[in-house]
Structure formats: C-alpha cells, structure tokens
Nucleic acid binder design. Structure first.
Lengths: 241, 241
DNA sequence: GATACTCTGTATCCGAGGGACACAGTTTAG
DNA sequence: CTAAACTGTGTCCCTCGGATACAGAGTATC
C-alpha cells in the first residue's frame, strides 16, 4: 500500500528529499543529477512561473527526452518539491552577536529574499507538504534563537509560523526588482476612483499616501511582529522575577 | 490591444468582477447565471480542490455542455477569480461598540474562517491579481477601523496586508474541522526522530509541546500583531501630546 | 574474457483538460 | 414578417503528464 496525497507519492517524495544520494553500481552511468534537474527547473520557473514549467521544457534544457526525467523524479509534483528545497537552500548563519530579535529580523529578511527571487515558491508551498531538510533547518534557526526567552516550545513554533507567513506573504506582494515600481496607486487606486463613496476610508488612506514612497510593508509588519513578541517575552520575564 | 497577464484577460476579468450585471435583450434567455456558475465551481473546489475543478465537471453539475460556460466566463482562470469573490463574500459588519483592536481581531478571525472553509482560496490568491468588490470591501473595513488612530494611510494599508497574510497563512496550516487533529507531532515530529543532532532546538521545542494541546497559532500570532500595532499607536499618541 | 543481469535513455501511445470555431435554434427589434 | 443578435451544442485541436515496452550500456559472476 502506498500512501498518496494529491497525486504525490509520499514515500517516494520522502526518499527524494531525505534519502541518501543512492548510487547503484550496475548499468550505464546516469547522465543527469538531481541537482542539475532541480536547477534547470528553477531557471525555467523563475522565468515563466510554475505554469511555464513543463517536463518537456526541463528535458529540452538538459538535452534529454522528457521521459528520461522520470528516471530521477517520480513526477512533476515531486520535481517542484525538489526545486523548492534547492531554491530555499541552506539557512544563512545567524548574525554574530545578535540577540533573539536581531536574529529573527535577519532571518525573516533572508527568507523574504529567497522567496522574492523565486516567485513560484509561494505557489509551491500551498497546502500541507512534506518539508525537506533545508526547510527544517530554517525552522531550527528560529527555535534556536528563541531558546531561553521563556517562550514555550509551542509558542516558539508559533513564532516561526508567523514569521514564515510574513516573509512569504510579502514576497508575493513585492514586485520583482526589475519592475518599474508599480506602487499601490496602480494596484487598486484606479479601482477606487469613481467609487469613493463605497470605499471612503481606502480613498482617504490612498490620498494620504505618497505614491513615490517605497513600499515598506515588510519592515512595518516585521517591526510590529517583533514588538509584539518582545512585549510577551518581557512580560514573562518580569512576572517570573 | 488587450492586456494579458498569465493567460488572464484583464479587461474581461474587470467587467466580470466589477461590471454591472449586463442584460442584453435580444436572443434566447440565458439558462445560467454567473452566481450559479460560481456556486457550482465552489462546491466542486471545496470538495476536490482546484485540481478537481474542471470545466467539464462544472458544466455537468449544471446540466450543460462544457462550452456553454464560455458564454458567461472567459476561461478557467477568470472562473476561479469569480469563485473567490463569491466565496469570500461581503465582509461582516464590525462588532458594535468595539475599538480598533476589537474590530481588527474579529475581522481577522472572520477572514480566517472564510479561507478555512475554502482551502482552494489560498492557491487562488497567489500572485498579483485584480481584486474584486468584496475583496476591497474587506480592506475598507480594516482601514476604516484604523482611522483616527494616528497611523498614516500607508501604515493602515500595511496593517491590512499583515492581517490578511496571517489569516490566510493560518487557514492553510489549520486542518479542516473533520480531520482528526493531525497535530504538529505527526507533521514533522517523525522527521526529527533519529535526527535530533541536526535539529536540537526543534527537538526540544517538540518535547516541550503537549501533543494533545489545541493548535493556537492563529490566536498567538494575532495577539502578537495586535500588541505590536497597539504599541505603535500608543507611542504615536503620547509623543504628540 | 564470455555471459547474464540491471540500469539508462528513448520512442510510442494514451487520456485528460482547456479552449477555438462553426452551426443551429431561439428570441426580440423594427 | 424578417433580420439581427444571442444561446447552447458538437466537433476539432493542442498541450501536457505519465505508462509501457524496448534497445543499448555497463557491471558482476563464472
């Protein structure tokens, strides 16, 4: 019996992400590697999104037939999971000498950067998934930074969920570097024009906003979140002493 | 010239979401309505996800041919956008007599509920989109709640982004009601077992966590965020006075 | 070294799904 | 009553993921 979820074979995915690089000795030597396939897929998805990612295109960019890929990867869904692991990569080392807040601040921005560099990563992380080693390593960093702050284990994990969500959410909102700063005005400013009576508060908020100002939603949200966490940690420590 | 983005005709999508219910007078009367189509799609997607949503199935559930749908909806992508607008629905009225914090707290939980009832909604909201009237109405509520708190227009919008992200993010993590409480342990506890040396902090956090405890990530994150916002508002008002 | 076994890449085929297009029937404007 | 406009349908095509069978390449065993 093989456990399947949404067309993804969990067992095969597990050994793909977590298994040791198996090297059978019989037969012709493989022309490809998992890493090369993942890189090729990432390049394509970076350029044209997940919709542009077809087995055919990946195979072409590696000069093999489409079906050759299935010798390495069970299917498209598993390929995307592998691409995600590769694109997220190892977590960066925590900044030297930083306290928990400095560590989490840096951590969130770094994760944001990775997500922004690979816009398809957001779509690749919807729904329950089997996390890869890199993904868990990122989580580990958050929890490690919070060790000794007085938060419970569950709370430390909740913080991680909160920060991952913020980084991922804002990477989606953020325009890629090359885009000519679309701004909020272009976003829904034009929708509100002519409907100021239905959206008076939005209209006022947009009027109050300098259309040339840089989008600071990442910093703003991150600062609020960290302030909130800090308040909790402080309350805990003062109550205990 | 028609502007296209990712296979979605923006112009046609705009009139689909924002246009007045057009009623041409010539020819046979339509057998379907946009609302009925959207409801049918929602029912299917609720049950089988966006992957299970095919034009064929939607048509069958309405007793028409697949191609009949294209008389109402430009294509699948636009159908999903319409389904999203319908599924999100009108924002609930703000709780009577609540301050900004009470309003935002309630608002976030309500939005969370809508997302959780329609798991496909997360996937339907990735990437830049054209928001519908309902979506803007939800945003309007947040900004309206924050009017007079001393936050700038941009900051009010940043708060909205932050709260939407949290609600949406946690609706994804949250298991549907009928699921037998998978818990974090089942999630990656088994992955850490045997690798405690690579993930010591995660291991400690999981050991510290009662596996029977209910998942409080929504409340935790929301409380932190609102605490952070409150701190900012307080700082602003005290500085000005 | 010959042989059998196994692994790799390929060629071919299939089904599902989105959508274009032309047509026939229906309803209303003039 | 006729022409125009609109609706639903049948048919066709293309793209894509994936199953299967096969031919060649390389290795272990005798």
């Amino acid at each position: 019996m093989t456990v399947e979820t949404g067309g993804v074979d969990q067992g095969r995915l597990f050994e793909l992400l977590w298994g040791a690089p198996t090297a059978p000795r019989r037969g012709p030597r493989p022309t490809l590697t998992l890493a090369a396939i993942a890189r090729a897929g990432i390049t394509i998805a970076d350029a044209d999104g997940l919709d542009g990612l077809t087995m055919q295109r990946v195979a072409e960019s590696l000069d093999v037939t489409k079906m050759a890929l299935y010798r390495y990867v069970p299917g498209r869904a598993e390929l995307v999971a592998l691409m995600l692991e590769t694109a997220i990569g190892e977590p960066p080392p925590p900044p030297a000498g930083a306290d928990w807040r400095g560590q989490l601040d840096d951590w969130t921005r770094q994760l944001f950067d990775r997500f922004r560099r690979h816009p398809w990563a957001h779509a690749a992380t919807v729904g329950p998934r089997l996390p890869g080693p890199h993904e868990l390593a990122w989580l580990e960093r958050v929890v490690a930074a919070l060790a000794g702050t007085g938060l419970t284990g569950a709370e430390q994990l909740d913080v991680a969920v909160l920060l991952v969500g913020h980084a991922r959410n804002l990477a989606q909102h953020a325009a890629p570097d090359d885009a000519p700063h679309a701004g909020r005005e272009a976003g829904f400013g034009m929708l509100i024009r002519g409907r100021e009576d239905r959206f008076p508060a939005l209209d006022a908020a947009l009027r109050d906003t300098d259309p040339e100002a840089t989008d600071a939603a990442l910093d703003f949200g991150l600062a609020r979140i960290l302030d909130g966490i800090e308040a909790l940690i402080t309350a805990r420590s003062t109550r205990r002493s």
